[in-house]
Design a protein around this nucleic acid. Sequence first.
DNA 1: TTACAACCTACAGTCGTTGTAGCTTCAAGA
DNA 2: TCTTGAAGCTACAACGACTGTAGGTTGTAA
Lengths: 144, 144
Amino acid sequence: MAERYSIGQMARIGNCKVQTIRYYEQIGLLPEPERSAGNQRIYNRAHMNRLGFIRHSRELGFSLDRIKEILALTDDPSHSCETVDQIARRHLLEVESRIKRLQSMRKELKRMIDRCSGNKVADCRIIEALSNHQLCLSERHPPE
Amino acid sequence: MAERYSIGQMARIGNCKVQTIRYYEQIGLLPEPERSAGNQRIYNRAHMNRLGFIRHSRELGFSLDRIKEILALTDDPSHSCETVDQIARRHLLEVESRIKRLQSMRKELKRMIDRCSGNKVADCRIIEALSNHQLCLSERHPPE
DNA sequence: TTACAACCTACAGTCGTTGTAGCTTCAAGA
DNA sequence: TCTTGAAGCTACAACGACTGTAGGTTGTAA
Ligand SMILES: [Zn+2]
Ligand SMILES: [Zn+2]
Ligand SMILES: [Zn+2]
Ligand SMILES: [Zn+2]
């Protein structure tokens, strides 16, 4: 006898909201499950596993599109995993670039905050620093 | 004679799109400028400076709401800068927490990628790791 | 005058959810 | 069996910070 899960149980185990699961179905990331006589979704273990994969990948920062790609690639287990690995490596590079950007932001923010003496707005070093990038250490702040 | 800037010049200097400036006006972040006889926006130095402040603050990661708050506080130069400093310190904490999250993601991603031997999908360590959080080093991946 | 870049408004789309309104269905206790 | 309340259903709007598009108007320089 197959395991059956309600959408609420799926949400609890997948650590997400019920709406999120319905959204995944809507965009074709989760297949449409069977329905009860009263039109309620009934999931099985395969759905459960797929949701687990999606949620864990999201926690590691992959976009839903990338996840969709990876899931499509896993359809043929005998296929080379080269593309999957490429996606993961590209994602790692993106994560590292975001870290660099945030570290540079942190440096500037710390400097601003340290210089402020907590006096009047007119003398605030934070406001001054926000007004004028010349006062920054970094040459410029790269976009995203 | 006052300096006059077209919206295109503002965008070039502010390093953003023309639409972004119209959007800032729409949400009340930039005041409505004067218009030419043909209804085109005409900015002055004050607008220019305000846009510079906004864009630099955005580059340092502040949300538009926080920027709006800070700009409101600078209206009275004799007022204490305590609130501004608090906003900046809170923002620094957020940046640091995002860095931690990304560093943990980087660690797991590196591990996954290193373990993959580049063979078939069935044996791919990346797919395996994405399927099963048990294989992660971190106990769990905290949300945003 | 003509050509073209730059401007105008209004609105839709992005990403990944989350919230709401107004229903219906399910499960457990009385 | 009836009742209650939690959980489910659809459909749609909102979030943040833009970005893109359509279809028209204005400004400017050759
Ligand atoms: Zn200060
Ligand atoms: Zn700067
Ligand atoms: Zn692999
Ligand atoms: Zn994990």
